[in-house]
Computed example of a mutant assay.
Amino acid sequence: MYEPTVARLTYRALLGRRRAAILFVLPALLIVIAVSVRLLAGADDQIASDVLGGFAIATMIPLIGVIAGTGAIGPEIDDGSIVYLLAKPVKRPTIIFTKLIVAIAVTMAFSAIPTFVAGLILNGNGGQIAIAYTVAALVASIAYSAIFLLLGTVSRHAVVFGLVYALVWETLFGSLVPGARTLSVQQWALSLAERIGANGTITSDVALPTAVVLLAAVTVAATWYAGQKLRTLKLAGEE
Rank of each mutant, 00 (worst) to 15 (best):
K99Y: 04
I131P: 09
V117N: 12
A118L: 09
A132E: 05
L85Q: 01
A105E: 10
I101S: 02
T153S: 14
Q128W: 10
L100M: 10
M108C: 15
K91E: 14
Y133W: 13
L120Y: 07
K99Q: 12
P114S: 10
T134G: 05
G152M: 03
A87T: 11
V139G: 03
A140N: 05
A158Q: 02
L122K: 00
I147H: 01
G127C: 04
Q128I: 02
K99A: 14
I147D: 02
I147L: 15
K88T: 15
T153Y: 10
L122R: 01
V139N: 01
V106D: 09
A137H: 11
A136E: 06
Q128H: 09
L86F: 04
V154H: 00
A143W: 06
Y144V: 08
M108W: 15
I131Y: 07
L138V: 13
L120E: 13
R156I: 04
L149I: 13
I104P: 07
V90G: 06
Y84V: 00
L149N: 03
N123V: 01
L120T: 03
V106S: 10
I142V: 15
A140I: 09
L100V: 09
A103P: 09
F97H: 15
I101N: 05
T153W: 08
G152I: 04
S141Y: 05
A118H: 11
V90A: 08
S141W: 05
Y84L: 10
A103S: 15
K99W: 04
G126H: 09
A130H: 08
G119N: 13
